[in-house]
Simulated scan of single mutants.
Amino acid sequence: MNQHETLLYTAKVRTTGGRENGKSRSSDGRLDIRLSVPGIPGSGTNPEQLFAAGWSACFEGAIQIEAKRTKIALPADLAIDAEVDLNVSGGAYFLRVRLNVSLPGIEDDVARALLNAAHQTCPYSRATRGNIDVAINLVKITPNQA
């Protein structure tokens, strides 16, 4: 860490057993989950779901910061549907992500500017930039989709 950095938080999680019948628990006990392999019956979640939840929550926070900076009022029903694909090609696993963002009541050009700024500042976006395929989509939610 250089002299201009400030450590804000360190997440500490211990995982045992991996994807198949594993368990993850945070040092403060606020996260305590069972793990299972994606796509097959099981009682736990999987790393891809956790990644989708983490990235979408972080991305929404980045949108909120940019909206505050630019004095744009965000709708109460802002929503992000995150999709994380686990793929394999030639024996190598890789991820692909889509963040489908609904910003009802905000003009498309303003909403896209918010999404672009959030994608530049969100730590998940920054960490994955150039490493995985990512699509940030502005979507329109119709009343029967909500």
Rank of each mutant, 00 (worst) to 15 (best):
K12A: 10
V13W: 15
R14P: 10
G17C: 14
R19C: 01
R19F: 01
E20N: 14
K23T: 11
K23L: 10
S24T: 14
S24Y: 09
R25T: 09
S26Y: 02
S26N: 01
S27I: 04
S27R: 07
D28G: 06
G29V: 03
R30Y: 12
I33L: 11
R34K: 12
L35A: 06
S36C: 14
S36E: 11
G39C: 11
I40L: 12
P41I: 03
P41K: 15
G42S: 13
G44H: 02
G44W: 02
T45K: 10
T45L: 05
N46I: 01
E48H: 02
L50A: 04
L50M: 05
L50Q: 08
F51I: 07
A52T: 05
A52L: 06
A53F: 10
W55L: 04
S56D: 00
A57Y: 12
C58T: 03
F59K: 00
E60N: 10
G61P: 03
I63K: 01
I63P: 01
Q64H: 15
I65D: 11
E66T: 09
A67C: 08
K68Q: 14
T70V: 06
I72L: 10
A73Y: 02
L74A: 11
L74I: 10
L74Q: 09
L74H: 06
P75H: 02
P75Q: 04
L78E: 02
L78G: 03
L78S: 02
L78H: 03
A79T: 08
I80H: 00
D81T: 10
D81N: 11
A82C: 03
V84H: 00
V84W: 01
D85G: 13
D85C: 04
N87D: 13
V88L: 12
S89G: 14
G90H: 10
A92D: 03
A92N: 06
F94L: 07
L95Q: 06
L95A: 05
L95W: 02
R96G: 06
V97S: 05
V97K: 07
V97Q: 08
R98G: 03
R98A: 09
N100P: 06
V101T: 13
S102E: 07
L103G: 05
L103K: 11
G105K: 09
G105C: 10
D109S: 14
A111W: 09
R112E: 10
A113G: 08
A113N: 07
A113I: 06
A113D: 11
A113E: 08
L114C: 03
A118N: 09
A118L: 07
H119N: 12
Q120I: 12
Q120V: 13
C122N: 08
Y124C: 02
Y124W: 00
S125D: 00
S125K: 00
R126W: 08
A127E: 06
A127C: 07
